[in-house]
Simulated scan of single mutants.
Amino acid sequence: MNPELHISSLVVQHRHDAIARLEALIDATASMEIAARGDCRCVVLCETDNQRVLMDCIDELHAVDGVLTVSLIYHHAESREEMDKPIGQDRLPQSGLPQGADP
């Protein structure tokens, strides 16, 4: 079985006084980081080995006192082998640039 990498973004809505508790949880969890923050919401990036760990992260965020909602906004899963391959011209999407033009 090929190990996978799951990359997800979550929007967490919370009361203003919950940010310190959220930061403490996220700082203590290697698979999560705050990518953007607002007054009462933040975007959390989560990189895990499988979907069960992702669901555990969502449950942990929900359990923080003052968290109102946790919404999964983006989720991508791919084999680590595929993710580790270098990006070459053959893997880039067609850009529509004229032939010979530098991207």
Rank of each mutant, 00 (worst) to 15 (best):
L25W: 04
V11A: 00
L45N: 05
L25S: 08
E4H: 12
D102Q: 13
L5M: 11
K85A: 12
G38E: 05
H75L: 06
A36P: 01
N50A: 11
L25F: 08
A28E: 13
A30Y: 06
P86N: 07
S9G: 03
Q13E: 11
C46V: 15
E33W: 02
R80H: 06
R41N: 12
L5W: 02
E82H: 10
D90F: 08
H16I: 09
A77Y: 01
L54Y: 04
A63R: 14
N50Q: 09
G88E: 10
A101S: 10
Y74G: 03
E4C: 11
P93M: 06
N50M: 05
Q99W: 09
A28M: 07
A30P: 08
A20M: 09
S8P: 03
N50P: 03
R41S: 14
D39H: 09
Q99N: 11
T69Y: 08
A20S: 14
K85F: 04
P103V: 10
L92R: 13
E60S: 14
Q89F: 10
M1A: 13
V67K: 02
H6V: 14
P98I: 07
C57E: 13
E82L: 14
Y74C: 08
V64D: 07
C40F: 03
A63V: 03
A63G: 09
E81H: 08
P103W: 06
E33M: 07
P3L: 10
I26G: 04
Y74F: 14
L22I: 12
M32V: 05
A24Y: 06
D27Q: 14
A63T: 03
L45M: 07
V67R: 02
L72Y: 04
H75C: 06
C46I: 02
D39K: 06
L97N: 12
G96W: 03
I58F: 01
L22T: 01
V44I: 07
A20I: 11
M1R: 05
H75A: 05
G96R: 04
I7G: 02
L45W: 03
V70L: 04
M83R: 13
V53K: 12
D84F: 05
A20R: 10
D59C: 07
V12R: 00
I26W: 05
C40M: 10
L68C: 05
L54F: 01
A77V: 12
L97A: 15
Q51N: 13
G88P: 04
L10I: 04
